[in-house]
Amino acid sequence: MDASVVSTVVEFSGGSAMIPASRDVVRRFVARLAAAGVEAAGTFADAARLVVSELVTNALRHAPGPCRLELTLKGDSVEIAVSDTGDGYPTFLPRDPQRVGRHGLEIVTRLCDEVITKPHASGKTVSALLPLL
């Protein structure tokens, strides 16, 4: 299937409402995948919602302005890309089971095959490749 057939882009103006709204975008996107006959593991929808929540939350915390969420079918994975206006890069913290919170990027890297941050003129885009199966 052509990846352009199943993709979505949503622009958020900012604020904490974009976190639950981003999970709704994932729910609708997963339904579109199913309608297009794309096979996904039973855990895919939950994993996709978690990855999106973590990336959008990071965008809100570190660049509280506008945020763009893009979901695109790419072969046997879905690329989840979150763009924001922040100039800082995600920071990997050392593994610490005693730490409360700040495990978002660790969770994303465990679930996804690849996580890449790309700078652009007005901020950055964090892209994560989540396998369907």
Rank of each mutant, 00 (worst) to 15 (best):
S13E: 13
R99I: 06
R32T: 11
V78G: 04
L105E: 13
E39V: 14
L69D: 07
N58R: 15
A121Q: 14
S4K: 10
A21Y: 10
D2A: 10
E39Q: 14
L130D: 01
A48V: 08
E39W: 03
K118E: 14
G101C: 06
V51M: 07
T125E: 05
L129W: 03
V52Y: 11
A121Y: 06
I80N: 02
P64S: 12
L133P: 08
G75A: 05
V51W: 11
T43K: 01
T91F: 04
L71C: 07
D96G: 02
L71I: 13
R32W: 11
S53Q: 15
D87C: 10
L129P: 01
T8C: 05
A34V: 12
S22F: 02
V82C: 07
A35Y: 08
A35L: 11
L130R: 01
Y89S: 09
E11D: 09
E114G: 04
A31T: 13
E11F: 06
L69H: 07
I107R: 05
A128T: 02
S13H: 13
V126K: 00
G65R: 15
T72D: 00
G88D: 15
K118M: 09
L60S: 06
D76R: 14
T125D: 00
L111G: 08
E11R: 07
R68C: 09
N58P: 06
E70I: 02
R68M: 11
F92N: 07
V26Q: 01
A31H: 08
E79A: 11
D84Q: 09
E79H: 11
S77R: 15
F12D: 06
M1V: 14
I116F: 01
V100I: 03
V5K: 11
Q98C: 00
K118F: 05
S77I: 03
H103R: 13
I80V: 12
R102K: 09
C67N: 04
L133V: 12
L133A: 14
G86S: 03
A48T: 03
K124D: 04
P131T: 01
L133I: 06
V10F: 00
G88V: 15
L55D: 11
M1D: 10
A47R: 15
E114C: 08
R49K: 15
V26L: 01
D24W: 09
R23Y: 02
A31M: 05
I116S: 01
A21D: 14
E106F: 11
V6A: 09
F92Y: 09
R32G: 08
V52A: 09
A48R: 03
R99S: 00
R110I: 08
A31S: 14
H120R: 12
C112D: 09
L55Y: 12
V5G: 03
A81C: 04
E79L: 07
E70F: 01
E79K: 06
P97G: 01
M18H: 12
G101V: 10
I80E: 05
V30F: 10
F44M: 07
L132R: 00
I19H: 05
A63K: 07
P66D: 13
R27F: 10
K74N: 10
T57S: 14
A63N: 08
L71P: 02
L69G: 04
R102V: 08
G15W: 14
A31N: 12
G65A: 14
V38S: 00
R61D: 15
A47P: 06
L69K: 10
A21P: 03
E11S: 03
A36N: 05
K118L: 04
L129Q: 02
R99A: 04
S22H: 05
